[in-house]
Write a protein that binds this DNA or RNA. Structure first.
Lengths: 184, 184
DNA sequence: TGTGGCATGTAAATGGTTACATGATTGA
DNA sequence: TCAATCATGTAACCATTTACATGCCACA
């Protein structure tokens, strides 16, 4: 079976939900996948086109006179099979996330302790606000999708985000403490 | 002051260590920055060239007759200033790490519990081996660079890697447990 | 004599973002 | 009537990887 890129699989997956248009897909990503995946329109529309070309989806265009075109994409059998096949494949390798704060910290002997502490504090604040966002999303999933088959898996990914974020916040605090000690 | 891309700053930073050639830079990245940054030769050599063009570094080429060229790059005053200036700037936004396992998990209702559990277990193993690698690097830093000014900051970034990895491993275990419960 | 590490580089392809362009619909 | 949101799309640009090309040197 042919291999596609990650963006293609992400969109195949989203098309299994009630989101069927490029615009809806973008919304869905921004609302639900935002903590571990993002895609721009510049990828979405071309990818949707290629899905149709590859026979992974059909498109239904509602072009009433005068009105704007709206495209609805629906997975074909082949599309579903392709998605399932990808889901079954093991994850090749751990992502090496490029982390700007770590890169800066790595070379921070060229900075004052104060400056470095400021950097870490700003970072910590962002992590905290991200954590708040996760909590809010979690509430909304629990509230709206109690019976949803998907909900369990969505909560799993959120749980990951929460745990890792908390762990990073703890690291910030710890590291700030060590810097403080050095300063004395 | 002009803005450069992250790769440029990473290389500026590495040029402050004893690594002065494209080859040495690549080694350094693979050994020390590997858990949060990686760069290929396809970026390194062109970037080094552009550093010289921009006046951020000087290049000294040892081209003895018959022998192969070896290039040594040294930061200029302007290069150091540019690096310091970047270090002082706050990190714009948290990285959204694209995480393939989370993407798969998100759509895992199309998979059997067994398949999903297998996926998570494989992932957990990779995390565990990564954690082992971190411990080994830590040992080697502590052993070789006890007095090094840089060592503290290097250990900070490693500590981040270790914490976040452990947190992810815990999440794997927890999530596997929840799946197990569902299966009963 | 051949293998692995040292050493430098480029071209093509891929992946992705940003900025732009266009226009309809909805509700205040 | 104005602003926000709905809706689709493209072109240029930027970043990055991969595959390729070359050749030295040390040492077994």
């Amino acid at each position: 079976m042919k291999n596609y890129n990650h963006t293609t699989y992400a969109i195949l997956g989203i098309l299994t939900t009630e989101c069927k248009s490029g615009y809806a897909i973008k919304k869905f990503i921004d609302n639900s996948l935002n903590h571990f995946w993002k895609i721009s329109y510049g990828q979405i529309y071309p990818t949707l086109k290629s899905l149709v070309q590859e026979g992974l989806a059909d498109v239904y265009t509602s072009s009433s006179e005068g009105k704007q075109d709206k495209n609805e994409y629906h997975l074909t059998e082949k599309g579903i099979d392709t998605l399932k096949e990808w889901l079954g494949q093991p994850v090749e390798q751990l992502p090496i996330e490029r982390n700007e704060i770590l890169l800066k910290l790595f070379f921070s002997r060229f900075q004052s302790y104060d400056q470095t502490a400021l950097l870490l504090n700003q970072y910590k604040q962002r992590l905290e606000s991200r954590h708040q966002t996760y909590l809010a999303i979690e509430q909304s999933i629990v509230y709206h999708n109690k019976d949803d088959e998907d909900a369990m898996y969505w909560l799993f990914t959120l749980d990951y985000g929460k745990s890792v974020t908390i762990s990073a916040i703890e690291w910030c605090k710890r590291t700030l403490g060590k810097l403080q000690k050095k300063e004395d």
